[in-house]
Amino acid sequence: MIRHLVLFKLNDGVDRDDPRVVEGVRAFERLGAQIPELASWECAWNITDRPVAYDYAINCSVADRDALVRYLEHPAHQAGVAIWQEISTWVIADYEI
C-alpha cells in the first residue's frame, strides 16, 4: 500500500474564496468517488495558522505503484491539478505503508 500526501500553499494574493480555489476544491473533493484506484481519500483545509503551515491537504492511499500511476494519470486528477497549478505551489510525499 502506498500513501500519497500533497500539501498546497495558495499563491500570494489568492484567497480561499477565489472562484478558482473553490473550483479546485470541488474537483478534488469528487476524486474519491471518480478514481477506482483510490483505497482511501481525504482532502481538507488546514485549521491552524502558523508561518510554516500549508493551506490545503490531500491524503490518500493506493494499492501499489501501478495504481499510483493510474491515479496520477487519471483525467479527473489531471483536471484538478490543472486548476491548482494556477493558484498554488505544493509538495508531495509518496511512501509505502
Rank of each mutant, 00 (worst) to 15 (best):
I2H: 00
I2F: 04
H4T: 04
V6Q: 01
V6F: 02
F8M: 06
K9S: 07
L10M: 04
L10S: 01
V14R: 01
R16G: 09
D17G: 05
D18K: 05
R20D: 03
V21P: 00
V21D: 00
V22Q: 07
V22A: 12
E23R: 08
E23I: 02
G24P: 09
A27Q: 12
A27N: 10
F28H: 05
F28T: 08
F28D: 02
E29G: 05
R30E: 07
R30G: 14
L31H: 12
G32R: 14
A33F: 13
Q34I: 06
I35H: 11
I35M: 13
P36E: 14
P36T: 12
P36W: 09
P36A: 15
E37H: 07
L38T: 01
L38A: 03
L38R: 02
A39Q: 09
W41Q: 02
E42R: 10
C43T: 13
C43S: 13
W45R: 05
W45K: 15
W45H: 11
I47N: 08
T48Q: 10
T48A: 14
D49F: 12
R50T: 07
A53D: 15
Y56K: 00
Y56W: 07
A57R: 06
I58K: 03
N59V: 07
C60A: 06
C60T: 02
C60G: 04
S61F: 10
A63K: 05
A63E: 15
A63N: 10
A63R: 13
A67Q: 02
L68G: 00
V69S: 05
R70P: 12
R70V: 14
Y71Q: 01
H74A: 13
P75Y: 06
P75W: 06
H77V: 06
Q78K: 10
Q78L: 04
Q78G: 07
A79I: 07
G80S: 10
G80F: 15
V81K: 14
V81I: 13
Q85I: 03
S88I: 03
T89W: 05
W90I: 05
V91A: 02
I92T: 12
A93K: 06
D94E: 12
E96L: 11
I97L: 09
